[in-house]
């Protein structure tokens, strides 16, 4: 294996890592911190992707000169729309089911089916694509043998920025303090004067908004269809569970490990077999570390 191949493989792994990380960050908050199994998380990603698509179409038709910057509008729109949807979802459905995690799973699965049909009926039953903006076309070539697509580099940067923002929000702001207080000890947080119901709603909305950002960035790599979300959901859960819930750093590390494995396995096996063996490997690891790879020791 030459250095070039090695470098390309490592970059592919890095790219998959950032994609998985974007997908899993939202779920790490919703599932990891709040304990809500949101099976509609994939559909929220699709919602973000459709926001990006809508923004692209809008700029194409009304402001072609600004087309180069629609990406940012798309990401922002995706975050706003999906987090607003998440807020309503929490108020309307999830909050009644906090004590029944397995029922939440079923209800949100139902929601995911409904959303899929909404996408199919009101947007398009076919896959939609967005045009690649001019400054993300092509690839960066540090040497002759290595070509790193710009769009993937953009996603790497976006993922790092998003992760940093989430970290800052959770650990450096009062809101983050409240979120952590509520997730660690709800009763005490309530006694200390925190409006726990409101914190729940905003936390859930944040997690959903992150799903929107993830979906929006995926439009640069692949087309979006009504069932796109379902392709991602199992992998996303696996990343969070593998890393250990209640640990953002664990989620990021597990995304890194799984991303690298995916990249190397795909080099040796076919794509589908690589996916299957990774899932199997994760299950085996979970058997030895039931609380995830990076779980902090918790007394229950």
């Amino acid at each position: 294996m030459t250095f070039d191949v090695l470098a390309m493989q490592a970059f592919t792994g890095l790219s998959i890592f950032t994609i998985l990380m974007l997908m899993a960050l939202g779920l790490a908050i919703v599932f990891g911190l709040m304990g809500v199994i949101n099976m509609a998380h994939g559909e929220l990603m699709a919602m973000g992707a459709y926001c990006s698509y809508g923004a692209a179409r809008f700029f194409e038709n009304f402001a072609p000169s600004m087309m180069d910057y629609y990406v940012f509008v798309g990401i922002l729109l995706a975050f706003v729309v999906t987090s607003a949807f998440g807020f309503l979802l929490e108020r309307g459905l999830i909050r009644f089911l906090y004590k029944r995690p397995l029922d939440t799973l079923l209800a949100t699965w139902g929601l995911s089916l409904v959303l899929q049909q909404v996408y199919r009926q009101f947007i398009s039953s076919k896959e939609v694509e967005v045009p690649t903006v001019s400054w993300l076309q092509g690839a960066w070539q540090p040497t002759d043998g290595i070509a790193l697509p710009l769009s993937r580099i953009f996603i790497v940067v976006l993922a790092i920025v998003t992760a940093a923002a989430v970290y800052w929000l959770l650990f450096r702001t009062r809101w983050g303090l409240r979120i952590r207080a509520v997730t660690q000890n709800r009763a005490m947080a309530g006694a200390a004067g925190i409006n726990t119901a409101r914190v729940d709603a905003y936390t859930f909305a944040l997690g959903c908004g992150l799903a929107g950002i993830a979906g929006s960035s995926f439009t640069m790599l692949a087309s979006t269809g009504p069932t796109t979300g379902q392709h991602y959901i199992v992998d996303t859960f696996i990343v969070v569970v593998f890393g250990g819930v209640e640990s953002l750093l664990g989620t990021i590390s597990s995304a890194f490990i799984i991303g690298q494995m995916q990249s190397w396995f795909e080099f040796e096996l076919s794509g589908s077999m690589a996916r299957a063996s990774i899932l199997l490997l994760v299950i085996v690891v979970l058997f030895f570390r039931p609380n995830g790879l990076f779980a902090t020791k918790v007394r229950r």
Partner: peptide
């Protein structure tokens, strides 16, 4: 159909 089965999941659980 998907509306129905999806709604069914939600209604039954809730």
């Amino acid at each position: 159909w998907l509306y129905l089965i999806g709604g069914l999941f939600i209604v039954i659980v809730m």
